[in-house]
Nucleic acid binder design. Structure first.
Lengths: 197, 197, 197, 197
DNA sequence: TATGAATGAGGTTTCATTCAT
DNA sequence: TATGAATGAAACCTCATTCAT
């Protein structure tokens, strides 16, 4: 008792356990044990097991969204904005491989979750990318041929897949390399004229 | 009596059920009912519930691999090869939204599945893309700056994410558009000189 | 097909399988495989799984009863009759350890079987012993203090337990020794005056 | 809520249910109902259904072993020791016919149980008898012709069979009579000179 | 707030038995 | 007679959730 934030400890424990066993193969009692609380205590902070996963996701996306906003605040060049976005994403994922696995793998898993209105944060994340693309198009820096939402989705898919590869432990190069190359790949396709890298 | 291929009927039923409810929220008895067989019959053809999902995946990838090989057989131009690959992928996915959902969503879900040696077909799928990239680099058509495996993974992530968006029913444009734009995006990044589209 | 006695083969197979796995842990399909017949064939010769065990028992007891009757036919001395009985029992058991295990272990297992009227043969077996004791008492060779049925039951328990020990593979002496000593032990208690052995 | 010892209540319930229906024909839910607990509660105290039977056995043998040790503590005469042993055994069995049936019938049933190392208590029980015989032989009270382990096993078989007869409800005389006669029978065979009964 | 023993609904799986061939 | 694919009832066991303390 007396730990300042029990909710936080449960969420952290959940990330570890879900990453190792998968959401549906994880037991609430495992999470409780990892968090050092009683099983019943979980239900003082979360509605049910699903809710733990949702909160993990919401909290994580919120945190990354905050970081993205901070990082992008002073950048105006569209190309630099997109490349910064990718780097912040990779850096965030790199902080916790377990978290990366949970948000990229577990969450897609069920339409129940994906269709959940509480997952709007994910929509906001995609919208953020799309917005960067639109800005770039407005600036004339990005090709106007592309549908911003599709480009955003494809961009997210690419960086997420690379983060997943890294998280699953089959990485054959550093996250940093992956980041650079992905950005490179995409920027070439986006910019009206291939940027001199 | 009994329809000729009961195994096939069970797999098809499983795809429908898993797509609708998610693997872990699907009951074996639902699959049996959908397939029009008794619960026990499932276990004459599959080791257990997990095995059904694995076989869905293996069979599907095998089928798509076959299609890709057929489609690519006579194409030599690297750019065209990659764009054909993407189109075949989208076309395959378009055939069964349920199957798309299952192979893109359910399968990531558990490292238990992803690490399973039976899932080597997925590795072959990625290798196929990487190979196309390498050929392109050898031909001088694709930039040699890129790590083929990373590029393959990113490419797969992008097209898979778009297929997922389409499958999950939030598509705001046709699969066909998505295909075209993704290819466009990537090819611009890959080719040594931006191709005139 | 064409095997002369399929019923016999199924019974023999059942003895082997039941002895190894225990009745309730044996599968009808195992018995069928061991007997080299199809699962369904079993049901042409036996009402159900229980019936197989009952028939194993009935057949075995019938066989031993026949042997006992043959062996005892020409013996009149009560002491010799009892010692012969024990020897025939041990010899029969020694012929098939599997059979010994089935009839001594599996059959007690369920009151369902023990109370079954089809198990009368077991009653006949006990009655045979009791009869030998009664004759001995009439001849004045055995003490009349004893209740023949109790003595029969105790005698059976003793030789059966030794047969079980032997069958279960923890025997530390030969069946033959066990036989001799048991008879010795009992005869000393039965005879009006300790016989000179 | 919750009687002090739920484990005890489950064991007692199990004895009743197993005795009536046989182990393999008993359902865990029957035991739970008889014990007045939920099905799942069983698994807080026992690993699985098999474990319940094993614990019934281990607990019972432990209890009887304790009684035997108490009863034999002050007795030195070998003949009296053996006859006391038999009486304690019969008395223990007489306390609960259901328990008698379970420990004598169900437990033999499966080599899985008999070969289980947890059943060492049964070995200790046999060793106790063998020890009494050895002491008797050392004292010169019992014939040295006999192998103590064989005699112990035969003795156990005899008293157990009589206890079983009594438990199964076909008893034609009292347990007390059975006890007396068995002891009588055996002692006559064991003692160097027939004791004056 | 916190606990953790108890609950009990319900899923996966087994396997004796059937029956069309 | 013989087969063996198919059946489907039912049991064991798990585990998310509750609630008395």
């Amino acid at each position: 008792m007396a730990q300042p934030d029990k909710r936080r400890r449960i969420l952290d424990a959940a990330v570890q356990v879900f990453a190792q066993f998968g959401f549906y193969n994880s037991k609430v009692s495992q999470v409780a044990k990892e968090a050092g609380v009683a099983d019943g205590t979980i239900y003082l902070y979360f509605k049910n097991k699903d809710d733990i996963l949702i909160q993990v996701f919401v909290d994580s996306i919120d945190e990354i969204l905050r970081r993205q906003e901070d990082a992008l605040a002073d950048i105006v060049d569209p190309i630099e904005r997109l490349s910064t976005f990718a780097r912040v994403h990779f850096d965030s994922v790199a902080e916790s491989r377990a978290l990366a696995e949970v948000i990229t793998v577990e969450l897609r898993q069920s339409s129940k979750f994906m269709r959940n209105t509480d997952l709007k944060p994910f929509g906001r994340y995609l919208a953020m990318i799309a917005h960067i693309v639109e800005e770039g198009q407005a600036h004339g820096a990005f090709s106007s041929r592309l549908n911003p939402r599709l480009a955003a989705r494809a961009f997210f898919g690419a960086i997420d897949e690379l983060a997943l590869e890294w998280a699953m432990g089959r990485r054959q190069s550093s996250l940093s390399d992956a980041c650079e190359q992905t950005v490179d790949l995409f920027l070439s396709g986006l910019v009206t004229r291939p940027h001199a890298n």
